[in-house]
Design a protein around this nucleic acid. Structure first.
Length: 434
DNA sequence: TCTGGGGTCCTAGGACCC
DNA sequence: TCTGGGGTCCTAGGACCC
């Protein structure tokens, strides 16, 4: 048995914790560069604002409907997520943190009424953190996701599902007639693992609801689509195929990419940006105790503009696997030189680290003694760099080619509506006056 | 004028091996 | 007219997730 617990409209709920006046109003959170909507309150959903809607297309609703749009404040969301997750872990013995707002909990062996237990945890998260959650409970992870969808939709749209399934939904507790009713009311595109493409194909084949989908036998699904969809169908039939990942394996690639606040044309701007992206990836790499053997760098123009288009990437092999910011940055800049072309309006760039391996399983090589010493001192230098940036904030210490804070850096992202980092930045804490 | 970022897994096809 | 069989590895592209 699994539970899936997630925060409702998570980013918006985080903003409302510190600004209760946003309750009951249509609120959205925008992506980096204030580009498009990535979280919507129920009221914003009711206005017909789609996930990913470009801000410039819906901006007029500020005036007409009192829409509130905020820039993404990931420092705040990450911190509230940690608090929510530690309380959600109380549901059962093992937890898998699946995303910033969702976790699966293995309920095997948990005694008593699971719905009651869920309700207590939900109340605690609401009271202690301030985030409203919904919980889905079922025999497989895919069904737990489905149950969670039912719990949320029943709460938000009365009449869509039986009322008693709102907020906390345990599919295992339903009779077969009621379960069939839930399956008939749920469209295939709502299923975890079925995206817009496959969803459309299924509908064209006359398979509209989860009920239709579970009528098909596995072999037909595999032949007509893929082993992935077959697995999903088996899970919907109650056969567990996806296990809980309670200690997620180290990442196989690490990326840092950004769209620019405005387009840039010069090599120097790209050099600064790529230096920063490379440094960030290197820091993440050290965080999971890995080395990388290859660095990928890409630059591209905006496909949304009518400008001449250019998009290229290149993979640069490193001389030896490393987690040193300078070596990784050097590789990335070397790649950038190779792919840069004059005369384009660049809108985005990024660095990805590939071919990752644990940093304690390095292939040894013959080195001169002083080189080995300098290798060790580089490791200490990187530890010191990370420690200083951890203590005093990201960007306190950077490589020279990253450019100087507050100087040009014309490429940095636009965030015109960000709320304070209430819980992670001393200078931005809430002040309460008597 | 203005359209996010960071991941995973699967598949098909080509190169290569014995 | 006729040209093996079985396997691995790599890459690019597609689909999906939040």
């Amino acid at each position: 048995m699994y539970a899936l617990i997630d925060g409702n409209n998570f980013y918006v709920s985080c903003e409302r914790v510190f600004r209760p006046s946003l309750q009951g109003r249509p609120v959205i959170v925008l992506s980096n560069n204030d580009g498009c909507a990535i979280a919507r309150s129920n009221e914003a959903k009711a206005l017909g604002i789609r996930m990913g809607a470009p801000w410039h297309e819906i901006r007029h609703m500020e005036q007409s409907h009192g829409l509130v749009a905020l820039s993404a404040n990931f420092a705040l969301y990450g911190d509230l997520s940690d608090r929510m997750m530690s309380l959600a872990a109380g549901l059962g013995p093992h937890q898998e943190i699946y995303s910033i707002d969702e976790s699966f909990v293995d309920l095997t062996g948990v005694p008593g009424n699971l719905v009651e237990r869920g309700r207590k945890i939900r109340e605690r998260i609401l009271q202690w953190v301030g985030i409203p959650c919904c919980i889905g409970i079922a025999r497989t992870k895919t069904l737990a996701k489905l149950a969670n969808h039912v719990a949320k939709t029943a709460e938000r749209k009365p009449g869509s599902y039986p009322e008693h399934l709102a907020q906390i939904c345990n599919l295992e507790a339903l009779g077969s007639d009621e379960l069939e009713d839930v399956f008939r009311r749920t469209q295939v595109q709502e299923v975890w693992g079925i995206g817009p493409r496959i969803g459309l194909q299924l509908i064209n084949e006359g398979i509209q609801t989860v009920y239709d989908l579970v009528q098909i036998d596995g072999a037909t699904v595999k032949r007509g689509w893929s082993v992935m969809l077959e697995r999903t169908v088996r899970e919907l039939k109650g056969m567990p195929c996806i296990e809980l990942d309670h200690s997620p394996p180290p990442k196989q690639q690490i990326a840092s990419t950004r769209s620019f606040g405005r387009t840039v044309t010069g090599f120097t701007d790209l050099e600064e940006a790529v230096t920063e992206f490379a440094s960030r990836t290197a820091q993440k790499l050290r965080g999971q105790h890995s080395f990388c053997a290859q660095v990928m760098v890409f630059i591209r123009t905006s496909p949304f503009r009518k400008d001449p288009q250019y998009s290229r990437s290149i993979v640069v092999p490193l001389r030896r696997p490393t987690a040193d910011s300078a070596s990784i940055t050097q590789g990335a800049l070397q790649g950038l030189k190779a792919i840069f072309r004059e005369g384009f309006n660049y809108a985005k760039a990024g660095v990805m680290l590939l071919d990752l391996q644990p940093d304690d399983q390095l292939q040894m090589e013959l080195t001169l003694e002083d080189e080995e010493d300098s290798g060790r001192s580089r490791v200490r230098l990187m530890s010191a760099l990370d420690a200083v940036n951890e203590r005093y904030g990201r960007g306190t210490l950077t490589l020279g080619s990253a450019g100087v804070r507050g100087a040009r850096r014309s490429w940095t992202m636009k965030q015109e509506r960000r709320t304070p980092r209430y819980t992670t930045h001393v200078g931005e804490m809430l002040e309460v006056r008597a």
